[in-house]
């Protein structure tokens, strides 16, 4: 178990290192010499050299990388070009919005996806299965930003039931917060629920056909117990994996969803910064999402070992 976790930890650290190197290389690959750009119009070589020394650009690239990595590790992302505020402060104000959106969508996806997947697997080939599959297919085929637009059109513009946009902090009004978040979370959760449903269904079908399920039935257990205790626990590993891997899609989806519902979140910040060429913010946002992705998937791997004793004891997956 310890060996397994240490191995995973080392892999995650290596991945993070690769991620940071990629971001650093991307910034270096930008056209134009930053020192020349900063020196203003018609610079004399001395000023450029001085700026270059100040920025550390005269040092070898590996050293520059290590210095940069050190700053990033200390969450020192510099200041926003546009607002002049420290980037880390900006991130901290924007993150809660996105985290709330992501967690609510994940909740929607997990609950709807797992329930529909189990129901479809148990009633394989019958109307329930058919309906769940059709729903999942639609969920996969309808882009969430268009679903969002249609949701706004129907519930906000035509019916006026829900606010079309805006974020109310839960500290101000919990109901207002949830009313504002309901549509974004449903919209973002739908596509994910479709993926989770399909995965749950296929892994449940496989599990339900396995010998130990036959054993459980032969023991005289109730169908509910067979499916929910013996079956679901075994397909949880696959479902957990898919949730971890779908985090990327969730983050991407969050960016557009925030754009549509005008939520001042993390994704919104990223898109704004691209258009204002606010590079320190883009760099920090990219790094933070990538790191978040790696850490969440590390957490998923730890969860595996809790769900599946074969990993806990032997320290490896087949």
């Amino acid at each position: 178990m310890v060996r397994y976790l240490l191995g995973r930890l080392a892999q995650a650290a290596l991945t993070l290192l690769l991620v940071s190197a990629a971001v650093f290389a991307g910034l270096r690959a930008m056209p134009g010499d930053p020192a020349v750009l900063l020196a203003g119009e018609d610079p004399d070589p001395e000023t450029v050299a001085q700026i270059r020394a100040e920025l550390g650009l005269d040092r070898p690239v590996p050293v520059q990388y290590l210095v940069w990595l050190g700053r990033m590790a200390r969450l020192d992302f510099g200041e926003s070009v546009r607002t002049g505020l420290p980037v880390s402060d900006t991130l901290l104000t924007r993150l809660p919005v996105t985290l709330e959106l992501a967690l609510l969508s994940l909740l929607v996806a997990a609950v709807v996806g797992v329930l529909a997947g189990v129901a479809a697997a148990v009633r394989q080939g019958r109307p329930t299965d058919w309906a769940a599959n059709a729903g999942a297919l639609l969920g996969l085929s309808v882009p969430n930003f268009w679903l969002g637009l249609m949701g706004v059109l129907l519930f906000a513009v035509v019916l006026g039931w829900l606010p079309a946009s805006g974020y109310v902090p839960p500290s101000e009004s919990l109901t207002g917060n949830l009313a504002g978040m309901l549509m974004p979370a449903l919209v973002l959760g739908t596509g994910l629920a479709a993926v989770v449903m399909r995965q749950t269904r296929s892994s449940m079908i496989e599990v339900l056909g396995s010998d130990y399920i036959r054993t459980a039935r032969a023991k005289g257990l109730s169908p509910a117990r067979v499916v929910l205790v013996h079956g679901l626990r075994n397909s949880m590993v696959t479902v957990l994996t898919i949730l971890g891997l779908q985090l990327g899609a969730l983050i991407s989806g969050a960016v557009v969803t925030e754009q549509i519902f005008v939520l001042a979140g993390f994704g919104n910040l990223m898109v704004e910064s691209v258009f204002t060429r606010d590079l320190p913010v883009v760099q920090a946002a990219v790094l933070v999402t990538a790191a978040g992705y790696v850490l969440v998937n590390l957490a998923v791997d730890v969860c595996y070992s809790l769900v599946d004793p074969r990993i806990r004891i032997q320290g490896g997956r087949s």
Partner: peptide, 25 residues
């Protein structure tokens, strides 16, 4: 039959490697 299975008539299957649930003791 559920009250019969495992209680009055029990079954042992062919594949011992896969007939026990791997995630429970």
């Amino acid at each position: 039959l559920r009250g019969i299975r495992g209680r009055r008539a029990a079954v042992v299957f062919q594949e011992p490697m896969t007939s026990l649930n791997p995630v429970f003791t």
